[in-house]
Every structure is written in C-alpha cells, then in structure tokens.
C-alpha cells in the first residue's frame, strides 16, 4: 500500500462522506470548539457526561476528509468510556498520528486507520483537531482550542 492509499483508505473516505454522530447534542453537559485557522477547519464537540462516563457524544463543523473522519471515528470510540479511558485513547491517537506509537494497537482498534497520517506532517493537525477539542472538553475548558497554539 502506498502512503497515499494508506492515508485515504476506504474507512477514512467512508467516515468523511457519512460521518457518525454528526449533529448537535441538545442535552450536552460539555461543549467545546476546535479551530484550525490556517486551513479553515472548525468543529464543535458535544459531550453528555454522567458519573464520569461519556454517555453520548456528537459533533458539527466543516473540515477535510481526514479531520471529519477522525472526528467521526473519535465519537464512535469514546462513547461509553470513562474520562480516564478517553484520555488514554487521546494519548494513543496522538502517538499514532505523530508516528511514535508506544501503546498497544488494541487500545486503538478502528482508529488504526489514522496511521497513514503520520507520513504527512502537514495533515497531523487535521487529524488531531477533534481530539484536542475532546481533551479540552474533558478538562472542562471553555476556551476554543486552536491547532496553532500547541
């Protein structure tokens, strides 16, 4: 598989065309916005947290295939997880897309589809936008996160 085929594998393109959990979550307890001002991607993440568990999660926004697919896969993965578990997945994804995976691939499951991003440093920000919004939301931060302030 070439780098390009790995980046744009079917799972990524499918999720970008028909993102899961796309829309506003009316009863969200935490909301956070993520922006990537250089490329124009923006995303709002909605979480419903009860007793430390992410009961429901949705997102809205516009972005490229990588950023939309990453957000879609993220919502699928973290639904039902505790805040601590979600943070662990965040760490593993960050390692994966920057090419420094130390966690076991089992932690990531389907998210391994994002592996191809590591060959494209320019696209790491696309893939990480929703995850930074998640991390910020898990820490109850209200300020929008920007990929330019890392």
């Amino acid at each position: 598989m070439s780098d390009l085929q790995e980046l744009y594998q079917n799972l990524i393109i499918d999720h970008s065309r028909s993102p899961k959990n796309f829309g506003v979550l009316e009863n969200a307890t935490i909301k956070n916005r993520g922006v990537n001002p250089i490329c124009g991607d923006e995303l709002t993440l909605y979480l419903l947290e009860e007793d430390g568990i992410i009961k429901d999660v949705k997102f809205t926004g516009v972005g490229c295939a990588i950023s939309t697919a990453s957000a879609s896969l993220m919502t699928e993965t973290i639904k039902g997880k505790t805040r601590e578990e979600a943070e662990k997945v965040f760490d593993a994804v960050h390692q994966l897309i920057t090419g420094k995976l130390v966690e076991k691939p089992e932690v990531l499951g389907k998210l391994m589809a994002l592996k191809g991003v590591s060959a494209y440093p320019m696209r790491v920000k696309c893939a990480s936008l929703s995850w930074h919004a998640l991390k910020s939301a898990l820490h109850y931060q209200q300020e929008p996160v920007s990929t330019e302030h890392e």
Partner: peptide, 13 residues
C-alpha cells in the same frame, strides 16, 4: 465534494 486540503495532498504526491 473534495476538500481543498485533500486535493492538495494528492496533487503533492
């Protein structure tokens, strides 16, 4: 239906 950044990455390749 194809975002500018996806087009640019493929053109770059």
């Amino acid at each position: 239906n194809i975002h500018a950044h996806d087009v640019a990455t493929i053109l770059d390749s």
